[in-house]
Computed example of a mutant assay.
Amino acid sequence: MPGIAEIALAGAPVAGGALLGMAAGNLKGPDIQGLIVKDMDLLARIPEAQVERRAELQRIIDLRIDDLITAVHRNRELRQIAASYEGNWRDIVVFVCAVLFTVVWWNVEHSRANWLVMFIVLIVLSVLAFIYAVRGILRGVRTFLHARHRAAHGQ
Rank of each mutant, 00 (worst) to 15 (best):
A12K: 09
A55H: 12
F101Q: 13
I137M: 14
I46N: 06
H153C: 05
T70D: 15
L43W: 03
T70S: 13
H73Y: 09
I32G: 00
G25P: 06
E109Y: 07
E86N: 09
Q80R: 01
G16A: 12
Q58I: 00
P47G: 07
R112G: 14
Q33A: 06
L9C: 07
V117Y: 15
T102F: 04
V93W: 09
D31W: 01
G154Y: 10
V121S: 13
W106P: 01
Q33K: 09
G11P: 00
L43I: 02
R45P: 04
I36L: 00
D41E: 11
V14S: 12
N88P: 01
N75C: 07
L20K: 15
I123S: 03
D31G: 00
L35E: 00
G140A: 05
V127F: 04
A10P: 00
A152L: 14
G25W: 04
R79T: 01
E86I: 05
A152I: 07
G16P: 10
I32W: 01
S111N: 14
A151E: 15
L43E: 02
I81K: 02
V124H: 10
W89I: 09
T102M: 08
L78H: 04
I60T: 12
M1I: 06
G21D: 09
V14A: 12
G16F: 08
R53C: 08
G154M: 11
A129V: 06
H149L: 09
G16Q: 11
Q33P: 03
M118W: 06
G29P: 02
M118S: 13
A24R: 13
D39G: 02
L138W: 12
F144N: 12
R45A: 15
N88G: 11
R142L: 04
M22P: 05
D62K: 06
R64I: 01
A71I: 03
E6R: 08
V117W: 13
Q80V: 00
W115V: 04
A12L: 11
G34H: 02
W89Y: 11
E56V: 02
G3T: 04
V141R: 09
M40L: 05
P13V: 03
R45G: 08
I65Y: 02
L100N: 07
V14W: 13
L19D: 15
A15T: 08
R142G: 02
V72I: 14
N114C: 09
V103A: 15
R54Y: 05
V108K: 03
R74S: 03
T70E: 15
A83L: 07
A24D: 14
E6T: 02
M22H: 13
D62P: 01
M118D: 13
L63S: 14
A113I: 15
H149M: 09
L138E: 11
G17Y: 10
A23E: 15
A98K: 08
D66A: 13
N26W: 04
V117D: 15
V108A: 06
I120G: 06
H149R: 13
Q50M: 10
A98L: 03
I131L: 14
D39A: 05
E109R: 07
A83G: 06
H153P: 03
V99K: 06
R135W: 07
D31H: 00
L78Q: 05
A151P: 04
A151D: 12
P30A: 10
